[in-house]
Computed example of a mutant assay.
Amino acid sequence: MGVAIRRAGEGDREDVVRLLDAAFMQDPVSSWIFPDEARRLRLHGGLMGAFFDIALGEGHVDVTEDGAAVALWWSVPAGDGDAGDGEAREGDVREGDVREGDVGEGGEDGPVLLRRIVDPGNERVEVIGRLTEAIHPTDRAHEYLHLIAVHPDRQGEGLGTELLAAVLEGCDREGRHAYLEASNPRSRDLYTRLGFDVMGATLDLPDGPRMWPMWREPRTAAMKRLTS
C-alpha cells in the first residue's frame, strides 16, 4: 500500500489528540468511562491527551504522514512479576474498590494520577487503569499497543494495518513480543489475523463491555509464509 509513516513529537500533540478524540468518542470502553455523553464530549479529549503524553515518555507515537491514523506504543521491560499475570479474575477489582487513599506513601500511582488530571470525580478513570494493570503480563519485555486510531472518514482503507505492520515487522526481526487489549470484536479479529492470540480470560468491565488481552510471539519467515 505504501503509506508514509513517521514518528510523532510534541508538536503533533494537538492534531493527534483531536484524531484520538474523534476515533474513540463512541468506542465501548470510552462510553463506559464516560457514560454521560455531555461529560464525554467535554472531558474525553483530556484522557486522550494524557495517553499521548504517556506514550511519548514510555515509547513512541507513529502517525501517517497525512495525519489520518495514529498508533501509541509503550516499550515495556520485563518486570519482577509483582503486577498482573495476564489473566483477569472476576472480582479482583470492582468499581468502588479503589480510592485515592489506597496508594502508598511517596505519591500517587498511575491510575490515581490519571484520574486526578482527567476527571477527579470519575472513579472509572482509575478503575480501568487498575484493571488493565492487573492483567498486563510482566514476565517478558514487549511492545504494548495502547491505542490505534483511524479517522472515522478514512476507516476501511487499511491504514491501521499499515501502522501495525511497521512495528510488528521490527518485532519479528528482533525477536520482540507485543501485547494489546482489544476493545471490540472487530479489532480483536484484525489483531488475530496479524498474529495476536487471546490470552487467558477476558476483561469484563463492571457493568460494561468486554476487552480481550492479546499476546503476539515474534514470527519467523516460515511462519509468515504459512499464514499469509
Rank of each mutant, 00 (worst) to 15 (best):
G57W: 04
V103R: 13
R130S: 12
E90M: 15
A50W: 12
R140A: 12
R130T: 08
G129P: 02
G101F: 07
L47I: 09
E133V: 01
G129A: 05
E37V: 15
G86I: 01
A88D: 10
P111Q: 12
E37I: 12
L145N: 05
G91S: 08
A83R: 06
L72K: 06
P137G: 05
G46P: 13
W73M: 02
G67H: 08
H146N: 13
V70Q: 04
E95T: 07
G45A: 15
D97M: 05
D97I: 05
V112L: 09
H142T: 01
G106H: 15
N122P: 05
E87A: 06
A88V: 07
D97C: 06
D36N: 12
I117T: 14
V93H: 03
L56N: 07
E90S: 13
A134G: 06
G46T: 14
T132G: 08
N122E: 02
G59F: 03
L41Y: 11
L113Y: 08
E37S: 15
H60V: 07
G81M: 14
D53S: 09
V127R: 01
E143C: 12
A88S: 13
E105N: 10
V61I: 10
W74Q: 14
A69F: 00
G49A: 15
V93S: 04
E108W: 11
G49S: 09
R42I: 06
A71T: 00
H136T: 09
T132N: 10
G59N: 05
D119N: 09
G104Y: 02
L113C: 00
V125R: 02
G49I: 05
E143M: 09
D80H: 09
I33H: 00
V93G: 02
G84D: 02
Q26T: 09
G84F: 00
F34D: 01
E126M: 15
F34G: 03
A78G: 08
E37G: 11
H146R: 12
P111T: 12
R89H: 13
D85E: 07
G81P: 03
E90L: 14
D119V: 04
L41P: 05
I117M: 13
G49T: 08
D139H: 14
T64P: 00
D27W: 07
V112P: 04
E87W: 12
D97R: 04
V127S: 03
G57L: 12
D36L: 10
V93W: 01
E123V: 06
W74F: 12
R39Y: 07
D109S: 10
E123P: 01
P111E: 12
L145R: 02
D97A: 04
E100I: 08
T64H: 00
D139F: 08
D36R: 15
G96S: 09
E123D: 15
E100S: 09
E123G: 11
E95C: 11
M48V: 06
G49E: 06
D36M: 07
G110S: 10
V61D: 05
G67W: 01
A71S: 05
G46C: 11
E123F: 02
E133T: 13
D119Q: 10
G84N: 00
D66S: 06
D97W: 03
A69H: 00
D62S: 14
Y144S: 01
L145T: 02
E65V: 07
H60G: 11
V112C: 09
P28N: 04
Q26E: 13
